[in-house]
Design a binder for these strands. Sequence first.
DNA 1: ATCCATTTTGCAACCGGTTGCAAAAATGTC
DNA 2: GACATTTTTGCAACCGGTTGCAAAATGGAT
Lengths: 334, 334
Amino acid sequence: MAATLKDVAERAGVSRSAVSRTFTDGASVSGKMRRKVEKAAAELGYSPNFLARSLTTRRTKLIGLISNNFHNPIFLEVFDLFTRKLQDSGLRPLLVNLSDEIDPKNSVRMLRQYSVDGVVVASSTLPPDFSKAFRDAGMPVVNSFGRYSTAPEVHVVGIDNAECGRMAARELISRGYQNVAFLGGPESATSTQDRLAGFTEELERCPQITMSHSFADAYSFEAGRKEMQRLLQVDIRAEAYFCGDDVLSIGVLSAIADAGLHVPGSIGIIGLNDMEMAGWENINLTTIRQPIAQIVNSSVELMVAMLDEPDRYPEARLFPCKIVERGTLRPVPT
Amino acid sequence: MAATLKDVAERAGVSRSAVSRTFTDGASVSGKMRRKVEKAAAELGYSPNFLARSLTTRRTKLIGLISNNFHNPIFLEVFDLFTRKLQDSGLRPLLVNLSDEIDPKNSVRMLRQYSVDGVVVASSTLPPDFSKAFRDAGMPVVNSFGRYSTAPEVHVVGIDNAECGRMAARELISRGYQNVAFLGGPESATSTQDRLAGFTEELERCPQITMSHSFADAYSFEAGRKEMQRLLQVDIRAEAYFCGDDVLSIGVLSAIADAGLHVPGSIGIIGLNDMEMAGWENINLTTIRQPIAQIVNSSVELMVAMLDEPDRYPEARLFPCKIVERGTLRPVPT
DNA sequence: ATCCATTTTGCAACCGGTTGCAAAAATGTC
DNA sequence: GACATTTTTGCAACCGGTTGCAAAATGGAT
């Protein structure tokens, strides 16, 4: 069907190598030859087959883009940014949905069968073993939105979750809240653990402030709502909550509204991520902004660098977060 | 690095063809041979290279998954469903973000270079030329969420947008609204055009009901909010609005709340899609449910069928929508 | 044990490219 | 114009697989 190297060579009356060289940059071809070949190629609508090429070059320009977060709207932004940035870097994302995989083995095999040049694991909830499994199979790996401390063997790009916890704590302290709580995502997620640790650490320096914590089953609206409903029933509610994630916060807000309580009057809420929706006027969530565009761009740049230097020494790239003040915390007392 | 066919053949002391046949289903190999080869393969951790294989089989099992909707949360659900269903069918999605492409040419070339087996265009806003460009390049194409009437040369899986418009009109009529309006997405989107046409058609049968329409710039919260703010200012507001999309509806709801008006007391709203968020208790949007899981599954099944039969006669598969009643329309008068 | 039909196996060519090497052509120098 | 040097070109082998074909092995019937 499609024209091949050989067709072009015959039409141009030259050798196959000459055609190949015309389409390989850095190869030696005279101007005359190039023109002849390009003419024939244009006439036949030829463009080289990447997969055949990859057989000898050992480069497919395919990158496995792996995630299990297909329910948190922030990941739509993440996919948008990743696909664009990868495309701009001449790479192509092979998307892998790991939502119900327990074992990385299948994905590792599949990605090897497709000879991907590298793997981006974009998830804050996948256990670090997954990233390691890909690395152990010899593929360059970047773990975006991952935990930086426990897996120094794999490149990580993300935020300092513990610092976010401390930041949230300081913010609540500065607003004069005396009884605060952390409402996290799933307890098993490293991001949840680290955010809680930072939050706790900072609050331990203020012994007069009461602190508690609990976990929602997932980073989702329903889970946040359910957990908040439970908390409101047992009636040991805090004055302000640091929620592990924006979408969780929105669930929490809905439970609070249903209970006839007012935000920030009766209860203060601070989220994390600053997803698009947090800025919607009917939500107006005070939150900690995670710089996802920077994280994504840096992840791809790191991946590109690794393609040239596969044994690059592993590094963690952390980006600072900052508070975005909207309407769900009471003002700083004057 | 990774073991090849030849390595396995040598280790097992058999020919390369024998190894190849062991990993090709339907090929003739004796039990004894199979065991020998599988043993050697297991010891070397061998699995066949799909890309090399594709060179002779002319099947990559790669499917281009193309979209330009990376801002409407419903598409996160769409991507989740597509990736799962494709994976379950033994296919792999090569994700292409067409957000700022004017011309399909580049994507066509790229997808040909990767020898994708087929292309799924998942978009309700891409012009039909895009789908056609892929088909003209000889690739099987399914246009999911597309318009079915104008492009009978390309397979389409989706809903009958005009019928949705009629359905919305009937619903508003049955609730006794006398002055209704359509607040659509971008005027250029075929989905918007068809929904408006159906809505208008049905209302023309009730001349006593006043009807108007306008368009938002995009299927987005901000666009919906802005358009509703404008409508509220000019003060020729309708009693009920059929909004082109749920996320648009949510923007509309926010504008209404800001104006101090009440839903469904002062204004009724009906959306379209039934995205997850529509069911959140603090939104509680009455809407028309688009059966996206069915559309996605059917799209993939159609794609699978086309792989065996590339010249299959083009068909349109339409799925019925139904109203999901929540809290943004006033009750049917008794 | 013999013969024939069937199944299994290996050889070699091919899929669509790239690349090291040596021969051929072009260029520069005197 | 002769010679040395550099650049361009084609040959042939290779990347990691598949597959048509013919030879070898197997199995069954007599």
